[in-house]
Design a binder for these strands. Structure first.
Lengths: 127, 127, 127, 127
DNA sequence: GTGGTCTAGACCACC
DNA sequence: GTGGTCTAGACCACC
């Protein structure tokens, strides 16, 4: 879980996104233990308080649970995987549509452009 | 044209993108003179070689023209605005679809999700 | 808002309680601006991060709203005063009943003892 | 008998309360010998003069008796258990009603709120 | 070992 | 001026 950080976003948010991606990709599963705050801090070369902030935010969203003295765990509820996936997809779509609008494209044009791109990709993959 | 830079991409590319955005937004027009390399370097607080690299890349794409002793100008051809717009839209769509695929979503799902989001936005504005 | 801290509870929680009490007592009202994080930190002789933690927790509960560069404000909704009052009363009752149970008293005994005490007080105040 | 101390109250009083709680919980019985002042001081990590002060106060209340050369004993009278229980309950009720009044609640409301809370607890356990 | 709290102090973004 | 982020490091509680 070694990543380079972006200056355009707080580190703790990038930590959250990395963990959520791992969950969506299936590398982490509901009930799994996350690395200890200090360990992950060392691995990611950031301060333990920064990891704690990330873990605490995720706890506030019900995505992880912290048991004092034991560690932090992905909430043991299979539903969260789908929840996180949808949340991340929604954010991705939001950013994308904003970008397209700033390029002067309107709703129908955006949908058409995405469809075109998708069909092009599927065509090239002989689906 | 004050921006914050991202460490995830060379600065000269970010400079190019900023200039292209200005063109698409209509703040720059075909035939307009760009700031001198040293002026822009100062404004953007980057090294003037970085600006030079950006201008040279754009010249290679036929997007700008440098006239010795006069400065650098947006190519005086109205068509380039649309070209740039489409190029940027295509890049944006590419990144977006890549993100969605990494979240496990497939072609039709992506199109449906975008349509849903667009309709939601239009619904809340048109009514 | 000068208080002495208790070692039995985190400082940031004590800060939250002090602010909630001020609200319930009417010294603070919905919409009021709280002291800036740095100012309150200085007044209370704690670190600004400790105050920030308190403010952030309250924001998570929808009790205050922070506007970057402007400050932190009690949520401008009269309903919260009653919400906070009920929340604090509930916590108070919970602690009390726990204490009484640890003294071996049961439900009806506790109610009877409270009633007795209340009537004694009201009697002595000529109500 | 390991406890954390509160700065809001003299330590010797906290020592007294701990001993009284042990009696009410049945961990100590009338006639039992208390630890020696120096032993208890070491266990509780406080100065032995603090323990001496606590023992002396309790002796003043007739709750313990010190026999020169033998040690300090809980007064060998079964009635004291009930006395202590009632005294502690009374203090607890007093603090509680003060808290509720400071939240703007009046006598009947307080009784109603306690009854509600108690019934809720019993409902969830009896069923 | 694991998380929780706190500090002092730095630097940033927005106004 | 106001909040936001981050660090290094301390000390604590619980196991």
């Amino acid at each position: 879980m070694q990543v380079d950080f972006d200056i355009s976003q707080p580190i703790y948010q990038q930590v959250i996104i990395e963990i959520q991606r791992s969950l969506v990709r299936g590398e982490l599963k509901p009930g799994d233990k996350l690395p200890s705050q200090r360990d992950l801090a060392q691995t990611m070369k950031v301060n333990h308080n920064t990891i704690q902030r990330a873990y605490r935010e995720m706890e506030g969203e019900g995505f992880v649970e912290t048991i004092r003295g034991m560690g932090t765990f992905i909430t043991n509820n299979p539903v969260i995987v789908e929840e996180i996936r949808l949340k991340m997809a929604g954010e991705s779509i939001g950013r994308f549509i904003e970008e397209m609008c700033s390029l002067g494209m309107k709703g129908e044009q955006i949908i058409a452009a995405v469809r075109e791109h998708v069909e092009m990709m599927e065509g090239s993959q002989t689906v």
